[in-house]
Design a binder for these strands. Structure first.
Lengths: 203, 203
DNA sequence: ATTTGACCTTTAAATACAAAAAGTCAGTTA
DNA sequence: TAACTGACTTTTTGTATTTAAAGGTCAAAT
């Protein structure tokens, strides 16, 4: 069995445990046992815990950005882009619980490498969305001042709603998640509708 | 000196300490000493800590609703209502730190009375704002489906932004508060501007 | 190259103990 | 008799000490 395959097996086991129990409540021995190894064998593939967590972070972040990319390829109407994004995030939230939260906050302190991945992922997400949104701005369908600023604000807002709820009661119940999703979608609806009526028509 | 005056003095001292140090890090003895009393004398006026905290909560909530009321009396343009609300909340946040957060969350568990005040305050806030907003809906300046639902959503959103930031680092630095306020205001601007351009003019 | 047993170090959990705070009340005081 | 105190008990919180667990190293084995 090749080195990379073993690394993948370890990574999968680590993701399973870390997303379920969080970083502090997951030991290397447990992860190793999941793949029928000793801790020392595991440490041959990943030098230390930090490195393993960084790899987990990178993999999940990659999966997230890839999924987002696929979503954007669908070329949905502009509002549906954000509504789908919310559904997509729920999926990740349900799948990875604590890691989703830890990737959105500064919980994993003292890990410059992880912090870096986190930042890159956030920037990549905003960048992809901004690029997509600019298409609609070009077509005159929407008209925010600045695509990147606007996207960042919306992302920060729906993230803070999610984190706020997620931290209150980990793991949140299905009803609580439903409530969150409903709020996030209502916000997007409101953002697109706008509160004032006297809008100038550009088209 | 009358009973009510002494109660007021105690309440003021309690508010000072509780808002600064939080519920857990404030003792009745300390509050009592602030007003040159013994703990037992204090407990003659407030039967137990719960009751004192409930009174503090009620007073601050009252102050909040009263301030909001005064703000609404100014009859500002609809968008400025929300922008002023954000400034007003910052003022309360700076003044009462921890209590503002504790009044917005379920930190003070096991205190049905306090929970009740909290809920009533939230409802009163949303109610007052909804009533004000309905004036503008009547004049055709804005057109949300439902005033109360819309107001509740906006309040939940700006609150979650505040709590999210406030919990990360209590007390937050001035720069962090400024950043929060800026985000909240940008969101309100966006809500009023709306993202789509093809708005129907009702007027 | 990969894995392990034996080992050391650091961190986290459990324990017990001391200190502080909450809460009670008979009995002063004005 | 309303307002308060001293002396007290109970509960909570903090701290110091120990113990267990987890992280991490390495020479030796496969």
């Amino acid at each position: 069995m090749s080195l990379v395959i073993k690394q993948e097996q370890i990574l999968d086991a680590a993701i399973r445990r870390l997303s379920h129990f969080g970083v502090n409540k997951t030991s290397l021995t447990e992860i190793a046992e999941d793949v029928h190894m000793t801790k020392q064998a595991l440490m041959y593939y990943y030098h230390d815990k930090q490195q393993l967590i960084a790899s987990v972070t990178a993999k999940i972040s990659g999966e997230y950005i890839e999924t987002l990319s696929g979503l954007l390829d669908k070329a949905l109407p502009v509002k549906e882009v954000f509504l789908s994004l919310i559904d997509m995030r729920r999926h990740f939230f349900s799948k990875y619980h604590l890691l989703f939260i830890q990737l959105s906050t500064t919980d994993l302190i003292g890990a410059a490498e992880i912090e870096q991945i986190r930042k890159e992922t956030k920037d990549a997400e905003a960048g992809l969305l901004a690029k997509q949104i600019e298409l609609f701005i070009g077509k005159g369908e929407i008209r925010p001042n600045n695509a990147l600023d606007t996207v960042t604000l919306i992302l920060d807002t729906i993230t803070s709603l999610a984190i706020f709820l997620g931290k209150q009661c980990p793991p949140p119940s299905q009803a609580e998640i439903d409530n969150l999703i409903q709020k996030q979608k209502a916000l997007v609806e409101l953002l697109f509708k706008g509160l004032e009526t006297d809008k100038i028509i550009y088209t």
